[in-house]
């Protein structure tokens, strides 16, 4: 967690509305935007960040004059749960080479759902590795496409070497109820993890 410059008193913060976010990851075309759109109260929005070709975090193009830049887009949705509570859902940019953007997205996140398409199962390796390394609670959701190979959940767990503690669920990203279940699983898993880590006296994982 890096909020080095964060100063509640000087920053004129008002403790009114609280927000949280859940991250939706997975390879290109796996259904991230569809999942967000199925449950978001707004049509998924897109935010862009500028980065250098070297893959360095941007925000400061002036410090890298002459370097080639590229724009990374991420989309997100919103669920207003109460007057003082908003949940945001952030889809990760397709390629894991946009690390800086992923780091920004997961900072402080509740947890993540990694979508898997059984036709391109290995696309999930990069996001799985990423969340494993960042110690962010995540669940794996199998997004079954029509005509895709029908694997059993446990076959997928084995193929992707997903540890037994990580929840693995089936989903249809187009259906609100199904998406809701995935998100419930993410939050429940995050709570269990937090409780377990608290019990062991380790620091709170916040991305």
């Amino acid at each position: 967690m890096d909020f080095a410059g964060y100063d509640p008193a000087g920053g004129r913060q008002s403790p009114g509305i609280v927000s949280a976010k859940i991250v939706v990851a997975g390879g290109f075309g796996v259904g991230k935007t569809t999942l967000v759109g199925s449950i978001s109260e707004i049509t998924p929005l897109t935010t862009e960040a500028v980065m250098t070709a070297a893959g360095v975090g941007i925000d400061d193009p002036s410090k890298v004059p002459g370097k080639e830049t590229t724009t990374v887009a991420m989309d997100f949705g919103r669920i207003t749960m109460a007057q003082d509570l908003i949940l945001y859902l952030f889809g990760t940019p397709g390629q894991t080479r946009f690390w800086f953007m992923w780091d920004e997205i997961i900072r402080g996140a509740v947890g993540a759902a990694v979508l898997v398409d059984t036709r391109r199962i290995t696309d999930a390796f990069a996001p799985l590795d990423y969340f494993e390394n960042r110690n962010l609670p995540y669940v794996v959701a199998l997004n079954r496409f029509d005509g895709a190979p029908q694997y059993e959940l446990e076959e997928v767990r084995e193929a992707l070497a997903i540890s037994p503690q990580v929840p693995l669920v089936m989903t249809d990203a187009r259906h609100r109820e199904s998406v809701k279940q995935v998100l419930v699983t993410v939050v429940e898993h995050a709570m269990l993890r937090l409780q377990a880590e608290h019990g062991r006296g380790s620091p709170t994982p916040v991305g």
Partner: peptide, 21 residues
């Protein structure tokens, strides 16, 4: 600005997760 950074303490964090759930 309402909340610049996410809750960090255990209790605070659990409460937030419970509300989201």
């Amino acid at each position: 600005l309402h909340t610049a950074a996410p809750a960090e303490g255990f209790e605070e964090r659990m409460e937030l997760l419970g509300r989201v759930l």
